[in-house]
Design a protein around this nucleic acid. Sequence first.
DNA 1: AAGTGGTCTAGACCACGGC
DNA 2: CCGTGGTCTAGACCACTTC
Lengths: 240, 240
Amino acid sequence: MPGTKEERSHAYKKIQAEIADRIRSGELRPGDAVESEREVARRYGVSLMTARHALTELEREGLVERRRGAGTFVAPPRIHFNKLMGYSEQMAARSLAVVSHVLALKLVGSAPEEAARLSLPPNARLLKLERLRHAANEPFALETCYFDADRFHDLTRTSLERGSLFFILEHNYGLEIAHADEEIDATPADARTARLLEMQPGEPLLRIRQTIYSAQGKALLYVLGLYRADRHTLHVRRFR
Amino acid sequence: MPGTKEERSHAYKKIQAEIADRIRSGELRPGDAVESEREVARRYGVSLMTARHALTELEREGLVERRRGAGTFVAPPRIHFNKLMGYSEQMAARSLAVVSHVLALKLVGSAPEEAARLSLPPNARLLKLERLRHAANEPFALETCYFDADRFHDLTRTSLERGSLFFILEHNYGLEIAHADEEIDATPADARTARLLEMQPGEPLLRIRQTIYSAQGKALLYVLGLYRADRHTLHVRRFR
DNA sequence: AAGTGGTCTAGACCACGGC
DNA sequence: CCGTGGTCTAGACCACTTC
């Protein structure tokens, strides 16, 4: 057949994905030897450079360690530092049940500070979403999200109570979340927050103001989070 | 021999270094086109794959951006997020005067928690350094550092009052500081801390517990920092 | 000594961008 | 259209680790 429309996926990507799957599935465990460049080349019928490319990419991903003269080995499981995760994802990572309650979902017409965080004009219409988060049946965080109301007009209360906001943004809206810039400080609890989080007014809260950006560098979302200090520790790795 | 100049022939390394120098010297400015793969190959008399390797490495370093069909261009200057800096360095970056007062510098024989943070046995002898930090003539942080007393026996009070601890570690001890893992939370001020930081007991403090590691992955230093919440905001970038 | 990853060659075709 | 980066071949020699 002339002009065959084969799947146009690149050989090295396929090899890379296949080995990555074998590592993530547990078939290959940390420390195990991965096939050598020459083995990969032979088994997949590609040239050495291509086999090499696949293994080099796996190393860049951190899944694999290459030692000259010795071989390629499955890397010890990586601790993900400075990784941006939604609440549901963090809870899942700790095998905790996801419970959160939507306190409010409404349009606000004048929130100049929050609009500025999203690089929108001061009078922009914003969608404000306030949620109370629970872990182990105790409230531990109050999170308020602000969206550009024009872009996210059809977010519904029920979809938000059910699922992960990150999931909705990435799948229903097709957005690629890339990074977040956070400002972290501590602040005393006001009366309302204290009541919601079942603590005493004036007790310390960890406050995180987070602006979340897409891969295109556009501010998607501003989140003001207040966390009970006794239930929450942030982990950060900084580099010299 | 440490410090030997690595002038291995590796063609791609030389090309990479030469282009990197031209960028860092300002000869090539952000947005400028860098020579294409084919130009590099011809000018340096190497094959395309080798020229390509050099440019790909420059991209990995973040010095260069490659756009298919268009070319290779000098990348905009990188913003350093999550950068590990000592107090003196942070103050210098904000053009603020460095003032800090050594409250204590002493040997402690039994500090099992702090020893554990340094991966030392529970009864290890530690050097404890407590410093009160000022900005704009107001106290704003209380930092307590713990060292392995056997390694850092000759730290003196005067050298510490004068200079940056990071500078001393890197220059006097020849250590290469690589990264720090931090635990961040909020906590109410106890009586002594409140007095030192001129605040009310119970008011919120930002607490940062920081373990600083060398390039060899060895824990060098454990720092417990307490920061007046109203004077201190932490900036972090997280990636998806 | 055998096997590994690291570097390198001298080509090839493709997909994409800008003119 | 031409030039660009992205993928790929079928080899080669070297430096290194392991036995």
